[in-house]
Nucleic acid binder design. Structure first.
Lengths: 117, 117
DNA sequence: CGGCATCCGGAATGATACTG
DNA sequence: CAGTATCATTCCGGATGCCG
């Protein structure tokens, strides 16, 4: 059996690659449903085009679902699928490590700021 | 308190972004030390330039260490740092999900292959 | 052996305008 | 409101050659 897990990591990366996918997931994982505009408010720096394309990718891979309401004004709701939920452990470890890393970095920063004080 | 974890995810991504970083980590996490050439053998598709730059990034962020032996022929050993070890849970969840995803995809494939049989 | 410098193409991302 | 179309740009990563 192979000890290195390159294929598995690559398979996961294929689904999660993209500047905004994990950001999007970190939001939708916490809500039952989210609308296009809500994503834009939550993620100010993302453009419509990027949001749209990343959402489509995630939908293609079965991570999120998309429901259109035929009404005016238009309404579209996104939700995380059951399969998408299986990504939560990844998100959790990412958030956990990031939290620790931010603390680590700010503790490193103090040593630098020291010279200006 | 903030419920969305965008900053944390982004902080983690800043360290892990790059086509090969997680692949590299998935290899070095299983070995005490690895040499430049060993990475090349383990990851046939990576170029010297990419390997070099990704290793430098990881070293910069304190994830791996680099030790040069002043001898001919040149010898350089890379190792995962203690801080780098803290990424293992992320790798584990990635590998775990990837494994499951590969099975999921191959089960989807059968339905398609069906038409050629 | 391990790695950097240079050049280069294509993919990823962004800005803006337009649409049902 | 929720996108798409188009054009511009940035940047990642690959090919190659040179170096200690």
């Amino acid at each position: 059996m192979s000890l290195n897990c390159q294929d598995e990591v690559e398979a996961t990366l294929e689904v999660l690659v993209g500047k905004w996918k994990l950001i999007i997931l970190s939001h939708i994982a916490l809500n039952k449903t989210m609308r296009f505009g809500e994503f834009q408010k939550s993620i100010p720096d993302i453009t419509k085009k990027m949001l749209s394309s990343q959402l489509r990718d995630l939908e293609y891979h079965g991570i999120i679902s998309r429901k259109v309401y035929n009404q005016m004004p238009l309404k579209v709701e996104y939700a995380i699928t059951e399969y998408g939920e299986s990504l939560k452990p990844i998100l959790d470890t990412l958030v956990h490590w990031g939290k620790n890393h931010i603390e680590y970095m700010s503790s490193q920063e103090k040593k630098v700021v020291d010279s200006s004080g």
